[in-house]
């Protein structure tokens, strides 16, 4: 149905940021409650969004609810600004809210992310929105929702440690590398969404507001700025993040999260920053990795 072809028909317009105002109010109420009870999963009436579940319907609804006309939006997909999910969601809000977008972590006021926290430290007055597939950290140990709610209510988190115990028993160390459970503000145990555990320390005492939206599971939770976030562990097996022997092949950064890229079928590979904005920034500042050639 082409508006032009129909001749004189008004162009289809959407409300600011796609969702209607009542829906945004409902989501904002859930967000306020989530901020008031850090780490607690607040149920909300998630809407159908014009994208499939698993593509960030929860994150998009949270973003739509907190987005203002003056915001500058950045969307990250696995650290990158230029992959399908990031491009699609950025385009969605350019079209429906006409907000400014950016790939720069520094310049953004609102960042929606899938599976990464930016390397550049976040600051106050920024909001980080996570896309969450499964908000319940206890789900694979306890399938009953009634029971997991009870466990959260009574702060019975022994079960979470059973999972870590199993890891050590099977692998000799805690082998959970992503969606690593955290305790928020000394109370609720929370799934930080499938970010690598490398990013877990960035959640702690973060100056930015962190919001988590799960569309299919219809849950919102939050970490207010400067909240204590502790990764669960054992006294004799303390929490550790991944370490990389290499530095980034393009920008020579070390101490950042790297992606492995297979180059050929003869074992050729390179390690590059997963955060493309961070990597580009370093290259522009003159940092050169070992594989940063002319074409890079």
């Amino acid at each position: 149905m082409n508006a032009q072809a129909a001749g004189g028909m008004p162009e289809i317009t959407y409300n600011f940021a796609y969702l209607d105002e009542q829906t945004k109010r409902m989501i904002r109420r859930a967000i306020l409650k989530a901020i008031a009870v850090p780490g607690y999963q607040v149920p909300f009436a998630a809407r159908e969004m014009p994208m499939p579940y698993g593509w960030g319907t929860g994150g998009v609804q949270v973003t739509a609810a907190v987005l203002g006309p003056d915001d500058v939006l950045k969307v990250i997909d696995q650290g990158a600004d230029d992959t399908t999910n990031a491009v699609a969601i950025r385009g969605f809000f350019e079209k429906t809210a006409r907000v400014a977008t950016t790939t720069s972590t520094q310049a953004a006021t609102l960042i929606q992310t899938r599976h990464r926290v930016p390397e550049t430290p976040l600051r106050e007055n920024q909001i980080l929105v996570y896309q969450v597939p499964i908000p319940e950290p206890l789900r694979f140990l306890e399938p009953r929702e009634t029971e997991t709610r009870q466990l959260h209510a009574l702060a019975e988190y022994g079960l979470m440690h059973v999972k870590l115990y199993e890891d050590i028993a099977r692998h000799g160390h805690i082998a959970t590398t992503y969606a690593y459970p955290v305790e928020v503000a000394g109370r609720y145990v929370m799934d930080p969404s499938p970010i690598p555990k490398f990013d877990n320390p960035k959640l702690d005492d973060c100056p930015a507001l962190q919001l988590f939206g799960a569309g299919r599971e219809k849950r919102i939770y939050a970490i207010p700025p400067h909240t204590r976030v502790r990764s669960l562990d054992f006294e004799d097996h303390p929490f550790r993040v991944q370490r990389f022997a290499q530095s980034c092949a393009l920008c020579a950064a070390s101490g950042v999260y790297l992606d492995e890229v297979i180059l050929d079928d003869k074992g050729g590979r390179m390690f590059v920053c997963s955060d493309t904005d961070y990597c580009n920034g370093r290259q522009e500042a003159g940092h050169r990795g070992e594989m940063a050639g002319e074409g890079a």
């Binding site: 022994g158 079960l159 440690h161 059973v162 115990y165 199993e166 050590i168 054992f234 006294e235 004799d236």
Partner: peptide, 16 residues
């Protein structure tokens, strides 16, 4: 081991 240890972890044991 995890089965036997579950109750211990539930009452606050945190040393693997």
């Amino acid at each position: 081991g995890g089965n036997v240890g579950e109750r211990l972890m539930a009452v606050g044991w945190r040393h693997y």
